[in-house]
């Protein structure tokens, strides 16, 4: 990617673009501008492999040429011919309100979501969106129309971050809401019950979804650079703590690392793609991770 383009995708630059749609387009087009060819753009029905015939297989797929040569029944298998169904689960809870840089975690998450939606819609994939905190705050059906992006944006903008996150319930609800197999992209800081989150992810996997997690965290949350007497007040709870942050830093980072480890291991265990993204990173990083993920996705099916 050219350096000038990379600069344009930096959150500070994106932040200046007020409208989410324009912002998403800017991200996606900026991202695509460097690429010659999208691996997903082209034939959607392509031969993949041969498989020995088993009773019950559609006879239309039997390769008669092979039967003629070898006197064996083989079935031809093709790539799916349908558009991919992608659902984005965007966390809009209180904790997403935090942001030390130009964008809060919530802004960052929304931008990623809309950018991805824009990207997918451009290639006629169906995209849905679900904004949530402890309950579903905005829901957009999975569609592939070009103008569906506006609905997604609307649902994200309408949801004001406030409450705690209840990940398991949300994931269960998502699994029930979108029963057709597809791709689930969870964009959240995952500051909720880890066990519940992992359980929800496992359930999605069990329903046959490809699951991808964009773990959005702020630089402050990862580095904890605070100094001097500080009163920390919970964004999702009434907890507060007067402390000298320098003294607590070590313990905090230990606890955070332990949390990240658990999440990473849980995701790996459930074959969930996981990416930790700092809000200071350029937004196209999320898109790059998504695309590289999509390339490897076939190996899992």
């Amino acid at each position: 990617m050219p350096e000038s383009t990379s600069k344009l995708l930096h959150p500070e630059a994106i932040h200046r673009i007020a409208r989410l749609e324009v912002r998403a387009r800017h991200v996606v087009e900026g991202f695509l501008s460097g690429m010659h060819r999208s691996p997903y753009f082209g034939n959607s029905i392509e031969f993949r492999q041969h498989r020995e015939y088993a009773p019950g297989d559609d006879l239309r797929h039997v390769d008669w040429k092979v039967w003629a040569k070898q006197d064996r029944y083989y079935v031809k298998q093709f790539e799916a011919d349908t558009n991919m169904r992608t659902t984005m689960l965007v966390d809009v809870s209180g904790s997403m309100q935090y942001g030390s840089g130009p964008m809060t975690k919530g802004d960052y998450a929304s931008t990623i979501a809309v950018s991805l939606a824009h990207l997918l819609l451009r290639q006629q994939d169906a995209v849905g969106c679900l904004a949530f905190d402890d309950a579903v705050r905005g829901k957009t059906p999975v569609r592939s129309q070009r103008n569906h992006l506006a609905a997604i944006i609307q649902s994200l903008e309408a949801a004001s971050p406030a409450n705690k996150t209840n990940m398991y319930d949300i994931l269960r609800q998502a699994a029930e809401t979108y029963p057709r197999r597809g791709m689930m992209i969870l964009i959240s800081d995952l500051l909720a019950d880890v066990e519940g989150t992992l359980k929800g992810l496992r359930m999605l996997r069990q329903r046959g979804h490809d699951v991808m997690v964009f773990h959005i965290l702020d630089d402050d949350e990862l580095d904890f650079p605070f100094n001097g007497p500080t009163r920390f007040e919970g964004l999702e709870s009434a907890d507060h703590l007067n402390c000298n942050p320098r003294a607590l830093r070590e313990g905090y980072l230990d606890a955070l690392e332990e949390f990240l480890d658990r999440v990473r291991r849980g995701c790996a265990g459930n074959t969930v793609d996981y990416a930790l993204i700092r809000t200071s990173e350029p937004l196209d990083a999320a898109l790059a991770k998504y695309l590289s993920n999509r390339l490897g996705m076939h190996h899992r099916n």
């Binding site: 935090y98 500080t230 919970g234 964004l235």
Partner: peptide, 8 residues
């Protein structure tokens, strides 16, 4: 200083 903090 007051800081609204997520990872309490």
């Amino acid at each position: 200083r007051r800081v609204k903090w997520a990872a309490m």
